[in-house]
């Protein structure tokens, strides 16, 4: 075994800063991937355990049910606001869809399809901001994007048999819910998370 090649003295003893700005940029660190995956699963688990919220809503019909759709879109806004990487919205929403599929959700494989549409909608909005805007407006618009994706999916797959005015109402309610719940509430949630200091390792600091 040869002994260590001696490092330069300045290297050896001077302070060296590592990883400055590693969280910025488009590269996904392991922690970015895992945090998005785990948060999306956490959302899925909570919404599953929270089922009493919509079990009675679905009895009131699709319009009432679509009031809470925004909740399902939260990962698509919250996760990108945390890791700030291209693809985060899409990845988060697909994972969320997988979770609800694994937990025996209503719609099965079709949730993946809707996950792609919803995540894709939010992703487009963040991409449009060149992945540089992460404020409340961007969040609300991302919620809007996800809501539009959701509305496109639902009006063509689930609610096709309903007349146009009914579908318009559903789409409208879904989009408004997406903006308010996923967008605005999602942004507020991330702000609250920041205050706790758990987001220190991510862009935007804590």
């Amino acid at each position: 075994m040869s002994s260590a090649s001696p490092a330069q003295p300045s290297d050896r003893f001077g302070p060296r800063v590592f990883g400055a700005g590693a969280e910025a940029g488009a590269r996904w660190r392991t922690v970015d991937i895992v945090v998005v995956a785990v948060l999306s699963v956490a959302f899925g688990v909570v919404f599953f355990l929270w089922n009493n919220v919509w079990s009675w809503l679905s009895g009131l019909g699709p319009q009432a049910e679509s009031i809470v759709t925004g909740v399902w879109l939260m990962p698509a806004v919250v996760c990108p606001l945390i890791v700030r990487k291209p693809g985060a919205a899409l990845f988060a929403e697909v994972v969320a869809a997988l979770v609800s599929m694994v937990l025996g959700s209503q719609w099965g494989m079709d949730t993946i399809l809707s996950g792609v549409l919803q995540g894709g909608g939010a992703e487009l909005v963040f991409a449009f901001g060149l992945y540089r805007s992460w404020g409340p407006l961007a969040a609300a618009l991302a919620g809007l994007g996800a809501g539009v994706g959701e509305a496109i999916h639902d009006t063509t797959v689930s609610y096709v048999a309903i007349d146009v005015s009914g579908r318009t109402v559903i789409a409208g309610v879904e989009i408004v819910s997406a903006v308010l719940v996923a967008g605005i509430l999602g942004w507020l949630l991330v702000q609250s998370l920041r205050r706790t200091g758990v987001l220190e390792a991510f862009p935007g600091g804590a």
Binding site: R29, T30, V31, I33, V34, V35, V38, V46, T196, V198
Partner: peptide, 28 residues
């Protein structure tokens, strides 16, 4: 809402521990 926040804090911490363990095993 408060309950959700606590859960998410704990989820982020879990994720960080997992990511560190995965990196220790060459995931990246």
């Amino acid at each position: 809402g408060a309950r959700l926040l606590v859960l998410l804090v704990s989820a982020v911490r879990r994720a960080e521990r997992m990511a560190l363990a995965m990196d220790a095993r060459g995931f990246d």
